[in-house]
Design a protein around this nucleic acid. Structure first.
Lengths: 338, 338
DNA sequence: GTGCATCATCGAAACGTTTCGACATCCAGC
DNA sequence: GCTGGATGTCGAAACGTTTCGATGATGCAC
């Protein structure tokens, strides 16, 4: 391995001059700087990561805790992981991926050995031991997701409440009054997952605020459950809904659309459909469905940015919510005349 | 951060004694060792990663190059990434995840800065610039997948040729002679992807060796393509196949099964179906399909093991193929009497 | 009791970088 | 021509660990 010493020798300057020339932390004459850079390039010099870390400078490494729960939707998960890695690279950071069940062990290990400068947590649940650990470690960290107790933590997430309101109010504005939401698997609401309950509660509140019956129905991921859920929704409304909000994963949405198509329900003529907080491409559904996207890219980029600012001591712990937006594919229309 | 110095002080011994007590590289009296371990635990000591790296010892970090091509199947990808991380942890290694398009840059960066001890490459294609880079860097590395030129490289993969033979010979043994294979998207065969051509060619060879017409049909990932492909297969065979081998991704297999069910084809009475080299759970298909699994766990565990052995200088570059095996779910039966 | 081998522990060097203080050199201002 | 401040470069310390060689203690054989 070529060291700074080799570069110094090649450029005919001292070690410290090389360091200053390459990091730019002190002014160096243009000509010297060029000579050093040339030598460094020619030799393929790269500062030894260990030495830089040891000296207390940045390690340029971030820990990413991305545990895989049983119910995790792999593509969505992948999207977030990827978004974090890409965002980190923008700041010249690499990512150490931690996936183990005993997530706290891993985080302890990498942060207490000063391997990483900071931490990003994905898939944060309402009560999450990693949140407590982050508080304990006192390391720069950002959570993607909002735990119950956000005290002393920096968190980023889509504003699920506003997403629910956005969906409901768009439907209300188009005259709909028989609105239902097809939710995630019941298990998810019980296992203190983070955003599903937030969305559900906001959906219900939005319906009530607009004077329509709030019909929210969780649903498991199989065809019969989907059928039962849709029947159940009709029963609760006393008639077929004129608008349906999906807050479920891709297979469930596909199954529901399939079922509705077989029943002869036309979208959007008979039924307006909105896919809320979906991480996949709803344009590929049959038919394409209007969506309020779950913005993996934005959330993760923001999480990285916030972690970087914590490193610079520029930011206090706080919660940041990302404004939801609507993407139209033509699956929403005015309420049909009865 | 608590350093080895603090531990030494707490235990009343010298720094080097602490190091020897914790690493076990020299004999230390039982009582002293216990005292040191106690102090280390009490203080929550963890060796500074930078210092350990600098000293030239292991960094206990591995680079995982997992690029995301357009056609990558996210769940499969995730499975491999996860398998690598878990396997690495068994050796007390953490994983730096590299996903960028310019994969070679990242690998250069982390290996030339001595950040990682070794490299694992996923999703290796026939002609892969990362393979050349690995050769150039001379770093311990293992490829999951087999490039065209394996000279000087250590590679692991499922033995796709034998998987094809395994599928074909099982069907032949049950009396089938109208056997077809539904392959991946044509683009995959053109874009030097690694195993699909290997499987295809072996499938054709196995058919020919058994005196049956080799019908192999690539297929894009949409319902109409699947329909066309199946019609095409019947046309080539001059009749409906009695056995079908899937060498395609989950959606295509699901669509094909759906289509066949609508046409009234019963599995396995009318048609035997085998899913070859599938990374997802074919037991969840409708109906469950016999499978020759793509063993992410095994491949990755072996890749990690081989990388570790390279670190110890115990292994020469070579290619290791994993023996395929068959899992029955009842989708294969003897050929129906005409 | 002396000499020798064995064993546990220690001191110090080395790893490659960053960074602080020091030291020339140069130029402007008087 | 001298002073004083800028500017560019250098030497050396420090980061925390591992590891080599050295040292002191202990036990055993003669």
């Amino acid at each position: 391995m070529v060291s700074i010493h080799d570069v110094a020798q090649a450029a005919g300057v001292s070690i410290s001059t090389v360091s200053y020339a390459l990091t730019g932390k002190r002014s160096i004459t243009e000509s010297t700087r060029l000579r050093v850079e040339e030598a460094a390039n020619a030799l393929g010099y790269r500062a030894n990561a260990g030495a830089r870390m040891l000296k207390g400078a940045r390690t340029n490494l971030l820990a990413l805790s991305a545990p895989l729960h049983a119910g995790t939707h792999a593509p969505a998960h992948m999207t977030f992981v990827l978004a974090v890695v890409n965002a980190a690279r923008e700041f010249d950071y690499d990512v150490v991926l931690l996936t183990q069940d005993d997530a706290t062990d891993g985080l302890r290990r990498v942060s207490q050995s000063s391997l990483v400068d900071g931490i990003v947590l994905l898939d944060v649940s309402t009560v999450d031991e990693r949140a407590d650990l982050v508080r304990e470690l006192g390391v720069p960290a950002t959570l993607v997701g909002i735990p119950a107790d956000t005290d002393g933590l920096t968190c980023v997430d889509l504003d699920f409440e506003r997403a629910a309101w956005l969906a409901v109010e768009r439907l209300i504005a188009l005259g709909h009054s028989r609105i239902a939401c097809l939710g995630q698997s019941p298990a998810i609401y019980e296992r203190g997952s983070n955003f599903p309950p937030r969305f559900r509660d906001a959906f219900i509140a939005a319906c009530e605020a607009n004077g329509v019956l709030p019909v929210f129905r969780p649903c498991d991921e199989d065809a019969t459950s989907v059928g039962r859920a849709i029947n159940d929704i009709e029963a609760q409304l006393g008639a077929a809904p004129t608008a349906l909000v999906f807050q479920s994963n891709e297979p469930v949405q596909a199954m529901a659309l399939d079922l509705l198509a077989r029943r002869g329900v036309r979208i959007p003529e008979d039924l307006s459909v909105i896919s809320a907080c979906s991480s996949f491409d709803t344009a590929h559904l049959e038919p394409a469905i209007d969506v309020i996207p779950l913005p993996a890219e934005q959330s993760c980029a923001r999480a990285i940015a916030l972690t970087m600012r914590q490193l610079d001591g520029l930011v206090q712990p706080h919660v940041e919510l990302i404004e939801p937006w609507f993407v139209e594919y033509g699956s929403v229309a005015a309420v049909p005349a009865d």
